[in-house]
Design a binder for these strands. Structure first.
Lengths: 208, 208
DNA sequence: GCAATTTTTTAGTGCTTGATAAATATCCCA
DNA sequence: TGGGATATTTATCAAGCACTAAAAAATTGC
């Protein structure tokens, strides 16, 4: 059983698979899953349809490969949650970073995961994207639960909602400043939630 | 120049235009603009395509008629903003009402205006919906500006973002309770904004 | 050089899309 | 009774969709 491309027989592939994934990611991000046709993809890649299917099986499988590629290149919430620092600050910086990311590119506005399959006709592409978004929320929830199990659910829910909102409005052309301001203001809720409902025994461990 | 259907000549229409708009609204709400084909519409209405086009000109025009119909049946922000009552309370109750509306129907989840044209292929339908959403935000902003011109923009922006978030998550099946909790928590931001940035001269008029 | 393997090119498949031309049916009014 | 107006039915239309069968081309190992 041989793997990789080393020493396998047959006609060599005429295009770079990884470059194709990157180009596909850009197109899906710009126009959404249904907004990119197979003709769009093959034309942009300079290949014919059968070459595409030989390499990726289907449009949906191609998209899901892109999703995985994207997920492993996105900074997780861990990087924002620092022991001893307030939770509200971590949430604020996380959402601000998202607001910047969502609006910094000229064409690929918003979140690829949240936008590409919004109102998507393909159920498999939709559920794959929803699963990634949910995994991200659960990851944030579990991290928050270490210091504030009572607030981990409501905070991660609120953040999920704001991410959808920021993404949608970024796609409508809102400026980075405007989105960042909304992100900052929404984090005020987290500060209030933390202060209003103090934990029973403050003998916990990590963040405030 | 005759109007309405009173006393105009010609073969009478075989279906009720208003019932068609209502049925179309339900379908567009459930499946989005691109998710409802003309065949879907004409089959559901029990008519043939030319009858549809004779009455509504095009799919996009039909949809825009539905949008107008929907907008004039949606409670505006005025009903929530009461003189002498805190702004944060008005925002909270407004968002809670939206959270309930977005999740109460079994199939037509989320906001028709925000969801039906999300990633929509038809630019005219998209811009019509975006205009209605923006008009709503501007209306809220102008009402808020009467008492707090310094906060009218950031608050209405935050609310716009939360509406998108609540709508998207309602569409994913989140329960009413969960959405209402997120709405309530997001309103804590508004309370904080109002308290943190007191107006210079409190000699204003309406809400706090 | 030959067989095996893989990808390429070429030319389609069947299906769905929004929208329509032409002929027919049904109404009002004179 | 007939003309004008409007809506109906029937039968399409061209374009786009994701996808593929078949054969030719390019590589490897022998």
């Amino acid at each position: 059983m041989r793997d990789k491309e080393s020493g396998r027989s047959g006609r060599p592939r005429s295009f770079d698979v990884d470059a194709a994934l990157e180009l596909g990611q850009r197109l899906f991000h710009e126009r959404g899953y249904d907004g990119v046709s197979l003709a769009d993809l093959t034309h942009a890649l300079g290949i014919a349809a059968p070459s595409f299917y030989a390499a990726f099986d289907s449009k949906a499988a191609f998209f899901q490969k892109i999703l995985g590629r994207h997920a492993s290149a996105t900074p997780p919430f861990d990087e924002f949650l620092i022991e001893g620092h307030p939770i509200a600050t971590a949430i604020e910086q996380f959402l601000v970073a998202r607001a910047v990311t969502y609006s910094e590119q000229a064409l690929a506005k918003g979140c690829l995961v949240l936008e590409a399959t919004h109102n998507c006709s393909d159920p498999s592409a939709l559920s794959a994207a929803e699963q990634i978004a949910e995994d991200g929320r659960l990851h944030m929830r579990d991290l928050l639960a270490k210091s504030r199990p009572d607030l981990s659910e409501p905070i991660s829910d609120l953040v999920a909602s704001m991410m959808h909102g920021l993404s949608a409005l970024a796609r409508q052309g809102w400026s980075t400043d405007r989105l960042v301001a909304a992100a900052r203001n929404s984090a005020l809720s987290v500060r209030a939630m933390v202060e209003n409902a103090k934990p029973g025994a403050p003998g916990g461990s990590a963040a405030t």
